[in-house]
Design a protein around this nucleic acid. Structure first.
Length: 289
DNA sequence: AAGCTTTTTCCTGATT
DNA sequence: CAATCAGGAAAAAGCT
């Protein structure tokens, strides 16, 4: 077995989290991901090579988005890690060591560290049409290898988030002899792409005061009730994310109202600009496990 | 490629 | 009055 993570993590550990002051994120502009570059390039290539998939080129906002995604994915409450410890761009993030992550995020650190490793791996070896993030857990009798004829080989990798050895695709053309015959079964499962739904966008603003310059505020934190303070500003932000400069609160609120039926939101009547998360909304609770 | 889901756009009418 | 809320309808955009 090869602990592949160690050879991926060959980046020197120099980032000192403590030295980075928690500056406000509210002034950060949204990155222009998935725009001109990806539409021009063939989708296959663009998906793998867009800056979006290369953590070293992430903006601070993208780092933050990734954090959100990780917490969602592992069902960890956002309040459990101090976001100000991650006021870093992709380059700085990538230079963080395991210890840096532990210092910055406590028990969540190892999970973040491992997930980032997988992303680095993916951006480094774009020939595989799935992300290591998609590899969830090995299941017996779940062969065959999803990329039998590629020069990618299966290798066991220790994944702290699963506390087990997880077979994962690994580029080791240098020593095919030991890897090609690998017979560990594995299962590939896609995670949802980066949360782009409106309610997630709203939730994420709510969860991060650093990025929330009085846009939306909790009315009742434990009940999931919140209120728009600057409805048009939020609409503008949403529009910016969707590359739609004509977004208005009028239209955004229509989309919000569709959530009632799906129980992502519950109706709060009588109070203007007030909404409440419903049973199908995830990741907003203070302690969600 | 086609079909389903989510969001956007537009609209009429009611309420605050 | 201006803003917001309610949804119907249908187009557009996203995803699988």
């Amino acid at each position: 077995m090869v602990l592949h993570s160690t050879c991926i993590m060959s980046i020197p550990s120099t980032a000192s989290i403590d030295s980075q002051l928690p500056t406000s994120w509210s002034s950060y502009t949204f990155p222009e991901t998935f725009t001109s570059v990806s539409t021009v390039m063939p989708s296959y290539t663009s998906r793998l090579w867009s800056q979006d998939s290369q953590p070293q080129y992430w903006s601070k906002y993208q780092v933050w988005e990734w954090l959100q995604q990780m917490l969602d994915m592992h069902q960890i409450d956002a309040a459990s890690i101090p976001f100000q410890n991650f006021d870093v761009d992709g380059r700085q993030l990538c230079s963080m060591t395991f210890q840096d992550f532990t210092r910055a995020a406590g028990s969540v650190g190892p999970i973040l560290h491992q997930s980032l490793n997988e992303l680095k791996w993916n951006s480094q070896f774009p020939g595989v049409d799935f992300s290591p993030l998609d590899v969830i857990k090995s299941e017996p009798d779940d062969f065959p290898c999803p990329f039998p004829e590629s020069n990618i080989y299966a290798t066991d990798i220790y994944d702290p988030s699963f506390q087990s050895l997880v077979p994962v695709a690994s580029p080791t053309p240098s020593s095919p002899d030991t890897k090609r015959s690998h017979s560990r079964p594995y299962q590939v499962k896609k995670h949802n792409p980066r949360g782009t739904h409106l309610w997630e966008f709203i939730r994420d603003i709510l969860l991060n005061p650093e990025r929330n310059p009085g846009l939306i505020k909790w009315e009742d934190r434990t009940e999931g009730v919140f209120r728009f303070l600057k409805s048009e500003a939020v609409a503008q932000l949403w529009g910016k994310k969707k590359n739609n400069s004509s977004m208005t609160y009028e239209k955004l609120s229509r989309a919000m109202r569709y959530y009632y039926k799906r129980e992502i939101l519950e109706r709060v009547d009588g109070r203007r600009l007030v909404y409440k998360f419903g049973r199908n909304a995830r990741g907003w609770r203070e302690s969600e496990k």
